[in-house]
Design a protein around this nucleic acid. Structure first.
Lengths: 218, 218
DNA sequence: CATGGACTGGAACGTTGTTCCAACATGGAC
DNA sequence: GTCCATGTTGGAACAACGTTCCAGTCCATG
């Protein structure tokens, strides 16, 4: 009943996904084309399409691959467990910015369910009422995905231009020159932009939501 | 010194943006091509490129146009003001799902600054310490953008397939069939999926963050 | 050794964003 | 009234992309 053994040098979905991740990581989202893949794998597009339905499926597979490596649920105290998951996601997306873009493109894939599941356990252990668990998990996941998307977009802009601090400095200048009547808040924020830490700010948001969740516990 | 008067029938960036929004709303993101635009405006691509640098700028302009219409800051009580802004964003993205996708693609455009500004005012009035204002605004904006992105992606899936309830029902079935050991939380959630209200859940998330923010106020 | 299904490589197709340019319109200078 | 410089237009052309198609190659099995 087992499939007959394959060729020794056979291409496989795993090898294709692996090559795709390498291209995405080293050259960015726009560099992942079937032509680049055929070149790297020294094959033709037909061979790739034999293992993978289309580019969407390929991207979903790469995303799932990266997320699965990160989503390990520990048995830490619930708050810390959620922080660990969130930071794991943040770091994964920091290392592979294209994941952020992909997660907001095709939802309800395995990758997103993994995140939901990882967050759901600690929420239960925290004593959140069952009716509210879906809302709380959804808030956390949507916040994480929002940051993920922004980070992905930022990475696109920064690699395209110069280095990060110069980029932030330019942005701050630009904000500071906005109309004082119309954008007072943005101008105030601009001052602190260059030395602001994305990761720290991300965690502050998680803690904000966690504080809100705590208020729900009877 | 003023530019000499233009032709009476002149194309303009406004007319192009308007036509683009019409195409996006009625036929979806994938239908917005320069060829579709030239057909609708009865012109050539060169004429469009005279007014618009490229497709990215066109999309940024359409997004800014839609957001600007929504971002009116009232003088309501701060919590309600933030809820109003958030719901305005939600409804705008519900009506124009492509906006959600665009916001997570090209950040730091005018559209995002408008949202930051709209949220910043109420945060100040709420008495949030200045050091924490950036973090709070960022949490709210990122959450909103996360939901926006997911809604955009969902809209893509639902219009492609059947109606919404059937889609959610199918999704719930799929979730309920997941491995019981690996996905207990997702399976539990699946039961409530068909009758769940996106808008209500979105607002619940906003309230969660607002509750967390309240805890910061001295 | 022959067979047939698993698998491969590459040519080809249709569509996209973008560029380029010859032509047209218009209002001020003469 | 004529003419020209500038602003604007329409469409042909290009390169790159995702995808399809198919003739051919490989190899466990009969």
């Amino acid at each position: 009943m087992a499939t007959r053994s394959q060729r020794a040098d056979a291409l496989s979905k795993e090898r294709i996904v692996e090559a795709a991740i390498e291209i995405l990581d080293t050259e960015g989202e726009s560099a992942l084309t079937f032509r680049a893949l055929t070149a790297r794998l020294a094959t033709g597009s037909g061979a790739i399409y034999w293992h993978v339905a289309n580019k969407n499926e390929l991207l979903a597979a790469t995303t799932n691959d990266v997320i699965a490596r990160v989503m390990t649920v520990g048995d830490a105290e619930p708050h810390d467990a959620i922080r660990a998951i969130a930071l794991g996601m943040f770091d994964a997306i920091d290392a592979h910015p294209w994941v952020g873009a992909q997660l907001s493109r095709e939802p309800w894939q395995l990758a997103m369910l993994r995140i939901f599941e990882a967050v759901g356990g600690p929420l239960r252990r925290l004593g959140v009422p069952e009716r509210a668990q879906f809302n709380c998990a959804s808030a956390l996941v949507n916040y994480i995905l929002g940051v993920a998307g922004q980070n992905a977009a930022n990475a696109r802009l920064v690699t395209a231009g110069t280095d990060r601090t110069a980029f932030l400095g330019g942005l701050a200048d630009q904000w500071a020159r906005l109309d004082a009547e119309e954008y007072p808040f943005v101008r105030q924020i601009a001052a602190g932009l260059p030395e602001h830490d994305d990761r720290e700010q991300f965690l502050a948001g998680i803690d904000l939501i966690l504080a809100g969740i705590d208020a729900l516990i009877p």
